[in-house]
Design a protein around this nucleic acid. Structure first.
Length: 219
DNA sequence: TTCCGGTCTG
DNA sequence: CAGACCGGAA
């Protein structure tokens, strides 16, 4: 089976076993973008507490957050961890939104994806995973999100050569799949669920994993 | 007490 | 390349 067919098969196996994910957690594109930054190197549960702090004070808007000083913002997002550096990164993102979109994140949708992606990547504190999360989940643009779970899953299944970088792995998915926002959204969500519950960093639970049929040693 | 997870800087 | 940045779950 070709790698592309295998990847497609893994998607259908995960979807059949786990059901649809209904991602991304977030009520608005802006909230989703904030969540994408807060979740860097952090479990989503911690991010939810930080988002709740902002919501409880009616501060979950670009203008309101921009008006906070970085120290206040840091305290509010404290539960997400790395709160000092993330406050600075959020500020960089808010400045970008102000300059590029007049604080209206959805106005970014009029830009071409590749051009916008490189602009977002140029924000200090926004790396490739965060950029793709914002483009895919907040702006509904067809870019594939790669994360630590994606690396691990592909490595364990022998589908990514050692030392492959972010964009190499992203290309594997985007070359194998049709350009489809809903598909990329659901695929990443399923990978996260499998990564957390089966393809764990230590002691992967391969025997009961939805992707067990795709392991090399399996029949 | 250890484990887990992105990005930047040195 | 390694180190810095953090909280919460296991």
């Amino acid at each position: 089976m070709s790698r592309a067919a295998t990847i497609t098969g893994m998607y259908h196996a995960m979807l059949a076993t786990l059901g649809p994910s209904r991602w991304w957690p977030g009520d608005t594109p802006f909230e989703i973008a904030v969540g994408a930054i807060l979740t860097q190197n952090t479990n989503w549960r911690n991010v939810e507490k930080a988002i709740a702090n902002l919501k409880a004070r009616d501060l979950l808007s670009a203008r309101a957050m921009h008006a906070l000083d970085t120290g206040e913002l840091a305290e509010l997002i404290r539960p997400a961890g790395y709160y000092n550096i993330k406050a600075a990164r959020l500020r960089n993102f808010l400045n970008f939104l102000n300059d590029e979109a007049g604080f209206e994140i959805e106005s970014l949708k009029t830009q071409g994806m590749d051009e916008l992606r490189s602009k977002v990547l140029s924000i200090n504190g926004v790396g490739p995973e965060t950029a793709d999360s914002i483009l895919l989940y907040a702006l509904e643009m067809p870019t594939f999100v790669v994360d630590a779970y994606t690396y691990r899953m592909m490595d364990r299944h022998g589908l990514a050569h050692e030392g492959i970088d972010y964009h190499g792995l992203r290309s594997i998915f985007m070359d194998a799949l049709p350009e489809d926002v809903s598909l990329y959204n659901e695929f990443h969500a399923l990978i996260v669920r499998v990564g957390k519950d089966w393809c764990r960093k230590k002691a992967g639970l391969c025997a009961t994993c939805p992707l067990q049929p795709f392991l090399d040693e399996s029949p």
